[in-house]
């Protein structure tokens, strides 16, 4: 008989688990706990058992009876809780929180450029913003009175010092400091005597790159820049090298990426050109190596320099360089959540 009681309890548990409504509950209650349940029948049968057995089975029967009543009460409480809780929590209300600020888009871009090049084995160096004319020009194979200086009108500080017009003098500093082979980038601020307009600022930022090792070739330059450009702008972008001229590289190249909107076909956003210029690059000029005491027969190198503002403008679609330096909250808040 004890097995029957246990089975009765199992059946009860099974059916109770299925209960979803008050009607279900009443049905289960009537079946297992009321006068019409099997409990009175068990009690009847109990009387027929021998005394010893009757005590054991009786105790168990009582336990089961109490347990069933308890479980039914619990279930009832659960149902009434569910019925009462008509209003759900309004999770559309704003959370209790601190407002977030944002990183500046120029710093976001520099941080990303640094991260990409670090992953390619480059180390990061810095150079001073107040430079000597010697490092800014002569050591880079740009003699005084050279027409190449026209594009780099400088702010002079006297005593042979100026505000660097590009990050390239850092090439000279890096080569004097390190021993090849090495891969380095140098992010930094530069100055040119250009009046403010939509595409010029007297203060701007560049990232310089320099790799020096025996046997470096244009292919190494191209391969590195391709990896970089695709990581920064997206895998679908194509990279194009065009010949150009910089006094401190030979051969020299301008690097373009295909327009993100038309993929090179030409559209309004790229002025119909299909390509957007992102940096100047080339193999390090032998004269630059000689200027720092390297033997251009033994080591070769490539260098590149990119304008951070230009890249940020391309990446985020910013039409005017002045916006970076005005720091209007309406502009800055657009970069929340980046970086």
């Amino acid at each position: 008989m004890i097995e029957e009681i246990e089975e009765y309890l199992r059946d009860f548990e099974g059916e109770l688990a299925q209960v979803l409504t008050r009607d279900d509950l009443n049905r289960v209650k009537g079946k297992y706990a009321g006068r019409k349940s099997r409990i009175p029948l068990f009690l009847e049968r109990l009387k027929t058992l021998p005394l010893e057995e009757r005590r054991i089975v009786g105790r168990r029967l009582n336990e089961v009876k109490v347990l069933i009543e308890e479980r039914l009460r619990e279930k009832e409480a659960e149902l009434s809780r569910r019925e009462q809780k008509r209003e759900p929590v309004d999770f559309s209300l704003p959370g209790r929180r601190h407002p977030l600020g944002a990183f500046h888009p120029l710093r976001l871009v520099v941080d990303e450029i640094i991260a990409i090049f670090r992953s390619l084995g480059f180390r990061v160096e810095e150079g001073p913003e107040i430079e000597t004319e010697l490092y800014n020009f002569e050591a880079l194979n740009i003699p005084a009175d050279h027409p190449a200086r026209d594009a780099q009108d400088s702010f002079y500080l006297g005593g042979g010092f100026l505000l660097r017009t590009h990050t390239s003098p850092a090439q000279i500093r890096v080569m004097k400091k390190l021993t090849p082979p090495f891969r380095v980038i140098v992010p930094g601020r530069c100055y040119r005597r250009d009046a403010f307009d939509a595409t010029h600022s007297p203060v701007f930022h560049q990232v310089e790159g320099l790799v020096v090792a025996p046997g470096i070739s244009m292919g190494d330059l191209k391969g590195t820049i391709e990896v970089f450009a695709r990581r920064l702008f997206g895998e679908r972008r194509k990279v194009r090298f065009r010949p150009s001229y910089f006094p401190f590289t030979e051969p020299s190249a301008e690097v373009d990426i295909s327009c993100g909107i038309c993929q090179g076909a030409g559209c309004r956003s790229c002025g119909g050109r299909g390509w957007l210029e992102i940096m100047g690059a080339g193999l390090v000029h032998p004269q630059v190596f000689r200027n720092v005491g390297y033997d251009p027969e033994k080591v070769q190198g490539f260098a590149f320099g990119m304008g951070v503002e230009r890249i940020a403008m391309l990446k985020f679609g910013i039409p005017d360089i002045r916006w970076f330096f005005e720091n209007d909250v309406a502009f800055l808040s657009a970069f929340k959540g980046l970086g």
């Binding site: 084995g121 470096i216 194009r240 051969p251």
Partner: peptide, 26 residues
């Protein structure tokens, strides 16, 4: 190297084969 550039310029930078400088990483 200036002569190298002259040849490369006209032959076409588009034909440069990409590679990656393969000395040990910093």
């Amino acid at each position: 190297i200036d002569v190298v550039e002259e040849v490369g310029r006209v032959y076409g930078y588009g034909k440069i084969r990409s590679s990656f400088p393969s000395f040990p990483f910093d």
